[in-house]
Every structure is written in C-alpha cells, then in structure tokens.
Nucleic acid binder design. Structure first.
Lengths: 332, 332
DNA sequence: GTTAGCACTTGAAAAAGAATAGTGCTAGGA
DNA sequence: TCCTAGCACTATTCTTTTTCAAGTGCTAAC
C-alpha cells in the first residue's frame, strides 16, 4: 500500500505528464508536496521500485508506467464535474430536438474529438443483431435504381444498381415478395434465406428472375458490418507520441482494420479503461469505452488516445454523453 | 525551341525523378543519351537556364521545375496503353453488371488510389443541380424514424429524426404534401420553397405543424453538398514529399476543406492537369482531373498526388475509367 | 525522516570533421 | 564547332566530438 504522500506524488506526476507530455522532475512538484526535491526523489525511487513510474533514461524525470496509469485510474482519479465550457458545446447537440440518437452520438463525438484531439469510435449494434425492417426500390432513370435497406435498429444502407431491360412491374413484385417473406430476419441470415426460400418463389412468379435475384443477393451480401463510425482519426497527427509518419501509418492501419469491431468488445456495463497492452488495438494507446443502450439502439462508444490521455476529462465527457443519450428516450 | 537531345534529356530526368524521387545526375542518364556526362551537364545547364530544371543545391543533380513538368506534359508525354495488370484490376469492377455507375466510380478510384498511392476525389454533380425526386419516412420505433431523401441524380441521403407524440397520420400527410408539391425542385431551393409554399399549407392541414415542419426543414438544410467522395487520403503518408507530420496535417486540412468542391472546377471537357501553383488545392501537389458525363449522372474525377506524379499512368488510368463509365450507359 | 550539496549520467544541441555525390569549367581532340 | 576527360570546388550527409543543461542518486548533516 502506498503512503498518502506517495499517492499524492504519483497523482501529480500523472497529471503533469498528461499536461506537458514531458518527463516530470522532482523539482517541478516539490513545492506542491511541501517538501524538498530530495525527498520527492527518494519517494520517486520507491514508486519506480513498485513499477508505478518509469524513467526514459538514467537521469530523466519520471513518467507513469502502464501500471502507474492503472493505479491512478483505479485509486486516485475521482469523478469530476464536467466543465462549463465542455458542457456548453455538447448541450447544443443534445438540445436539438430533431436529432435522432445516432445523429446526436456522431455529432457529440465529433465535438469530443475536436475538443480533445483524440479519435472517437461509435460502434452501432452489430449487423447480426440487426433485423431487416424494410427494403424499397426507387427508380431513378431508365434502368438505374436505388435499393434502400432499413433495419429495425434504424440502420439504413442504400446501393445503386442497374437492372437493364426489366420491367418495373417485375421488380415491384420481387420487392414485395421480399418484404412479405423475410422482413424480421437478422441481416446476416438474409442472404441464405434469400437463396433457399425466396429464390424458388421468385423464379415461379417473376420473369427474368435470374438477374433480379442476383441483384438483390449482391445488395445484401455487401450489407456488412458497416455500422462503425470513426471520427477524428486525423487528430492523431496532433499527439506528440505519434510524431513520426511511420507511427501514424501504423496506428491508422490499425484503426481502419476490418476487424476493429471485434477489438472493441466490453464485458462491462459501464465505462471501462484499457491502458496500453490492456487493449487490443495498439500497445501505445488507451481506449476508454462504454456501452450504451436506448430503446431503439445499442452499441459502444470508444475514445482512442495516447496512454498519456486526459483520463478525467474523457471519462467525464463519456459519462455525460452516455447519460444524455440514454435519457433522451424518456425525455422527449 | 529545344533540340531533340534536350527533349530527350528532359524527358529522362522527369521519368527518373518520378521513379526514384531523387535528384537526377548527369551520370545516371549519359549512357542512355549516348554521350558523356560532361555533355549532359552542359545541356542540363541550358535547360536550367530556360527554367525547365532546378537544383536542390549548388552541386546536386537536377529535378524538374513546375515549368519542366508542364513542358513534359505538353510536349513529351505520349498516350500510353494501359498496362495489362492495371487493366485487369479495373475490369473486375466494370464487368460487375450489377454495380451502378456511382458504385463503379468509387470502387475503381479506390483501386487507383491503392495502386498509385495518390488520393482520389469523386465529385458528383453539385447539389444545386440535383432536383428532389422523392422523400419517404420510415418509422422505426415509437417516435424514432428515418427520413430518406432521393434526388433525380440518384443521390440518397437519410437522416434519423425523433418526432415525439406525433401521429403517423400527420406525418404521412406532410410527406405526401411535400412529395406532391416540391418534387422536381433543385435541392438548394427546397428550403425556401418549404418555408414559403409548404409551411402555410401544412399549418392549415396538419396538427403539430410547427414541430413537423421544423424537422423537415432541418433535414433539407443539412442536405448540403455532401456529394463529394475522397478516397485514399491516407496514401499521402506514403509519399516521400510528405514526410513530415506538419506537411501531412497541412495537406489533410486542405483536402478536408469545406470549399474543396470549388477548387476542383474545370473548364475543360477532357483530362486536365494542374501542376503545383496551377491548382487551387496546394502548391506542392498536382491534380489530374476529368469531367465525366453519363445519362444519369455527371461530375468530376480528380487524382491528387505529388508534383512528382506518374503522369502517364494516371492519365491513362483516368482515360480508361472515363471511357468505361461513359460507355456503360449504352452497353448495359 | 528530511534536506543541502555535489558528483555523475544522459540526451539534446551545436560544432567540427570526413566522405560522397555531383557540378562547372577548362583545355585539348575529332 | 561540338564533344569529352580531368580536376577543382561545393553542398550534403553521416560521424564524431564537444558542450550544455536537466536531473538523478548518494552522502552527510540537521
């Protein structure tokens, strides 16, 4: 167990390092601790012994280790009030009556990304939990038309298709067959249901069924887990820990990874913090995330930033967003 | 006027520099020219005098100046056949019968970005040339619904809205009023038409008209010139001329600029090339762009890369895409 | 337990030196 | 008149050296 003073010192070092991105020297904090730098130094040495602090080289100041951040997060950080400034910005989003939840989410996370220079990720419900709600086809010109697919979670996707030399009549027939027969099917089962249940029926009632069937089949096949939204990726460029092109390239590719979805899974019902090696995205970042759940939608919000992240602020902001999102269902 | 040999030398320097991103020395090309390096050097000096070449420092090899690239593009570059490899990749996109034009475009430009490591931009018809084709509202759950707006150019946009405590009946009425009265209106006139023509009518027939009206008003207000599609922005990180975080940040912000649309305007009906200061985006890049026009759609495709861009290849690729896109209307 | 003092370590920045790549110029030859 | 071999000259880059400042660890005294 740490002494009161050690707690204090660790906390100061974490906060200073978050602020300045520079190893923290004993001199910088000895005033606040009300003792000499020598005393602070010997405490620092103990904290390093315990694995809570690190040096970048023999005679540098200290920076928090991953374990140090973890300790800070678990024991030293306390819930802060959201600052007036932050709140003000977010409120303009939440107070817009006409914005639906998903819009609110995206917009508020855009704000957070801009405010903090971290990257935000919104992860909607995964598509295998989405059920087909309705499809519709809007003819644009000649054989060019748009297929719109809507799920019960409010996820919309549209796709342009060409269906040359096919009468509108036949297409309408197919659409209403699909709407009658497979609405309510989980999205990723639609393809197979289409094949085994709809194809035989279409081929009986619809001319040119081959072409039409293929078209719809492709539409659904491409309706993948696109329900992931990455906001503010470019802010990574502003973080001093990603000051080389190679590091940026590396992290970009990890964020654009097709399997990112699987890397942001949480067992926790509340805000959880994954520092460095604790997260599956990258050893040099921290991910702070929370699931959210409303009447119409559920998913996860995650903020990705350097380990030297403003934990207090991000947690407070995420809490605020989560609350407001989940409240919105009752309110209006 | 340049001599035959000077043309040859300039061409070689441009090509070598494009390939190696390194100042080109007299030694490197004297074999190909069949004369001594000294001769090449004196020719280089003349070419520099004419402003076609530059040195990075007193005793470096030469690199092409903007004027040099311009001369190359105007006089020395000749149309090349697309390589088998490039063609093969693109064909898989164009031969997909079910892909509509806009899909084809995006996918083929994604390919080009990956192949060349340049950034591609697709600019669809600007929204003031888009006319409203249809709107529809799909209720998802309780007061949560999705408004889908479709233009006659096939541009689709959807927006989630909350309309609490409003009966479906009233909403349907409003939608059909809008569809009856302002379909065919250019998108950017919709807002005002909504205000002056629809609002009075809604307020007569529809209860809660205030809230409903505001919702739709917002939907259209947000339907801005989003018809721009930037592909492969991150490839900039691979270009040696953008090897510092600051340069990347700068170019990123220029590409994400709200006014990018206006900076990619072309008077030319064919492929045009804007080198360095000739383009409005950034002095350090070249933009190669072409308008395209099909029965259902028109717009511009642009490729953005360093001035040291593989002009031949990009022009060939763009031509190939333009042709295939424009052909598609007749074919199937 | 705390602190002042001092030797010591390290990295970062500046300066100096060596190596290299390439030019410009000159003078002699086809 | 054009071409080319040869050589002096110049920047750049890569190393090495020097200097400087920031901080630590340790010791001895309070």
């Amino acid at each position: 167990m740490l002494t009161e003073r050690q707690n204090e010192i660790l906390k100061l070092i974490v906060l200073e390092y978050i602020k300045l991105a520079h190893p923290v020297s004993s001199n910088l904090i000895c005033d606040t601790i009300h003792c000499s730098s020598a005393t602070v130094r010997s405490e620092m040495a103990s904290l390093e012994e315990m694995g809570l602090l690190e040096k970048t080289h023999t005679s540098s100041g200290r920076i928090p280790s991953e374990k140090g951040y973890r300790y800070y997060v678990d024991h030293l950080m306390k819930a802060k009030e959201i600052t007036g400034e932050d709140m003000l910005k977010l409120q303009t989003v939440f107070q817009n009556q006409n914005l639906a939840l998903s819009e609110c989410l995206t917009q508020s996370l855009e704000l957070i990304s801009d405010m903090t220079s971290y990257t935000s990720i919104v992860l909607g419900k995964k598509s295998h939990e989405n059920k087909l709600k309705e499809i519709s086809v809007v003819p644009i010109k000649d054989s060019h038309m748009i297929v719109i697919v809507i799920t019960d979670q409010g996820h919309v996707e549209h796709k342009d298709v060409e269906l040359p030399n096919i009468s509108q009549e036949e297409i309408k027939k197919t659409v209403s067959l699909i709407n009658d027969l497979i609405v309510g099917t989980p999205i990723d089962e639609v393809s197979s249901k289409l094949e085994f249940e709809i194809k035989p029926i279409i081929s009986r009632y619809v001319k040119e069924h081959e072409l039409i069937y293929n078209t719809f089949y492709n539409v659904f096949r491409d309706f993948t887990n696109k329900n992931i939204n990455i906001v503010g990726k470019d802010h990574i460029l502003e973080q001093p820990e990603f000051n080389s092109i190679d590091k940026v390239k590396d992290l970009f590719s990890k964020i654009d990874d097709k399997h990112l979805v699987d890397k942001i899974e949480s067992d926790n019902q509340n805000i959880s913090i994954y520092i460095g090696k604790e997260n599956k995205i990258d050893n040099d970042v921290t991910v702070i995330q929370t699931p959210y759940k409303t009447e119409s939608e559920e998913g996860t919000i995650a903020i990705v930033g350097p380990k030297r992240m403003d934990y207090d602020r991000v947690v407070t902001l995420l809490e605020y967003i989560k609350e407001n999102i989940e409240e919105k269902k009752e309110g209006e």
